[in-house]
Design a protein around this nucleic acid. Structure first.
Lengths: 146, 146
DNA sequence: GTAAATTAAATCGTACGCAATTGAAATTGG
DNA sequence: CCAATTTCAATTGCGTACGATTTAATTTAC
């Protein structure tokens, strides 16, 4: 590995960082009508897959700690997407649940996203290939960071 | 595109976001001894490729606006990595230049990064493949966002 | 049964990212 | 030449990210 591998253009980390930020900007366009940020949309995605999860379970899926999630979820509660209530069985756990609005918006928001993503016109095989490679990379990095 | 394509696990954007954050965390470990953050390291990379650039040129390469760069560069100036001076030819432009420390640290910091990256043990062909695919994706997204 | 350890959310502080605006300097067009 | 436009960096405000600590509730171990 020589110095020419250390240019901005040759850094995989930098290209991931660039692609991620552009991708998020792209999604934000579709989410703007709903007043949602991308991380907030991720919370909705997780809850649409499984409602009524404790905060730490959302954190496990999204790799967010309570330092990130607590204020984010409070904002989502204020905007009427979710409710936050202590679990009866364990008063340390905060159960996050979709509101009626949060549940029923799924169809409309998905359609907005789909319209938006369809314009990207990425080859489905490329998409799946990159997804698989990213998952492999994520596994490698997670192992190295303990 | 059906609802099963909308799970967290099937979102390319989310996997980019996850990989990017893990990658940055990985780099931060190597950068911690120098008190550098990853975005600050990117500025150094750009300046090591070409010193004495105006703020907006760094912004073009890293896709940062002055709203991000101005405070970031002030922190780097305080820590002695760079200097900030108005261009004589154009008093609107702020020329960013490496300090002696900034210039000479290159060798040592590169070595730290290389030691760290070598442990990843990613196949070089995979690395190049992902880099190329990311660049293609970045181009697509940039075009769609104007 | 209770002190020690663990788990969970919240809090604190710092540093991005980025949309939007501001204000100053340079360029342009009539 | 000079008013209008454009180009810059800086500022403002908000929402993440995340290391580190705190506080409260539950488990564990003896």
């Amino acid at each position: 590995m020589n110095d020419s591998d250390m240019t901005l253009a040759n850094q995989l980390c930098f290209s991931m960082y660039r692609a991620s930020r552009l991708f998020i900007k792209f999604y934000q366009q579709a989410l703007q009508p709903y007043g949602l940020t991308y991380p907030q949309y991720l919370v909705l995605l997780a809850l649409w897959e499984e409602d009524r999860q404790p905060l730490h379970a959302l954190g496990d899926q999204l790799d967010f700690g309570s330092n990130t999630l607590t204020p984010l979820l409070k904002r989502m509660e204020r905007k009427g997407w979710i409710t936050r209530e202590l679990a009866n069985s364990d008063h340390r756990q905060l159960i996050i649940q979709l509101t009626e609005t949060g549940r029923t918006s799924k169809t409309e928001i998905f359609e907005s996203i789909r319209v938006c993503v369809r314009q990207q016109a990425i080859d489905p095989a490329d998409y799946r290939g990159m997804l698989a490679q990213n998952h492999a990379l994520i596994d490698t990095l997670e192992k190295m960071l303990n």
